[in-house]
Write a protein that binds this DNA or RNA. Structure first.
Lengths: 174, 174
DNA sequence: TCAAGATCGTCAGACGACTGATTAAATTTG
DNA sequence: CAAATTTAATCAGTCGTCTGACGATCTTGA
């Protein structure tokens, strides 16, 4: 929460090994490690951007809209691998905060065309260094070489399973 | 959803490279890759356990209670790195399905002591092979060596940042 | 002993995510 | 052209997760 060590905790029972194999079946699961690592990444990002009140998902949406003003919600969802419903919800949130606009498409009445407001653009600028700090901090325990390896392995997982996830990554046409 | 290829999708705009650098700033973020990989891990687990109606979080809780009958909710939360509230919610769900019991602690009136029901134990047995299939499928694109590397790198991230996350991993005493 | 502090469970509120259904607006086709 | 199909957005419902607050209970130290 506060970015510093949270509290003098009563010494995690790590070393004392009260029972070596407890939950080994869970701790060994890659899915568990990924959940944990993701949890950590969210925490670090949240800490670095605390003052700006933006989550990593919101940051992704802001960047996408900034790079492609006029993108619709489906385009954003596909580019980021988000669910359509989730996207609609978060976009509504950002609209409510005055960070982006949601206009009707000129010729296709179904589409909602997204673009940053002045304030959204300003916030995004302030966000960039914070996001960079978060990236660095997350990767701090790894060497540059190791970070590249991790990145490559995760990319392999993503490529291989892309079609299996309900929301595959897809770039907007044009 | 259905475990098969979901639909003949209209050819992801991958190769055609409509704009090489679109969202590169996001795609390069390790946090983004971790979110995606976690999303995939959840999907694979869900597919393998679809018939049993159990999520990976629920599976973790069932295993923890099975290995330590009599553990309380805080113990479960700390062992799995879950929030107390989350744990209470999921435990309530499992209790509602008759998979575990929640009794008052004999001497400490604050504690709720957890244990598997017959049905919970049976389900857990049926779950083991499904969880193993999920693990294998998730790691399918990696060699054994690469899987070990990935595991090791994620462990490094976890160890280094453990204290920063609000819910550090902690084994129950005794 | 008793008041202060710590701990367990729970609630409300917020956010992200997925499913399934519905509505409205294209687009395709017979 | 009109009907059938497809697609964008939204909604309701479920689940997981975290935060902050609260009441009940336990422990401790003055």
């Amino acid at each position: 929460m506060n970015g510093q060590a949270r509290k003098p905790r009563p010494a995690p029972a790590q070393g004392s090994a009260p029972e070596a194999g407890f939950l080994a079946a869970i701790y060994a699961r890659p899915g568990f490690k990924l959940r944990r690592a993701h949890q950590i990444a969210l925490s670090v990002f949240a800490e670095e951007c605390r003052s700006l009140e933006v989550t990593s998902t919101q940051y992704g949406i802001l960047v996408a809209v900034s790079e492609r003003p006029g993108l619709d919600q489906v385009g954003v969802a596909q580019a980021l691998g988000l669910d359509r419903s989730t996207t609609g919800m978060v976009v509504g949130l950002l609209e409510g905060r005055g960070l982006l606009r949601r206009d009707r498409h000129a010729t296709d009445g179904r589409r909602r065309v997204l673009s940053l407001t002045e304030e959204g653009a300003r916030l995004l600028e302030a966000l960039a260094p914070a996001a960079e700090r978060a990236r660095r901090r997350l990767l701090a325990p790894l060497s540059a070489e190791e970070a590249r390896t991790l990145t490559a392995l995760l990319d392999r997982l993503m490529d291989h399973h892309d079609a299996l996830v309900r929301v595959p990554l897809m770039r907007p046409e044009r």
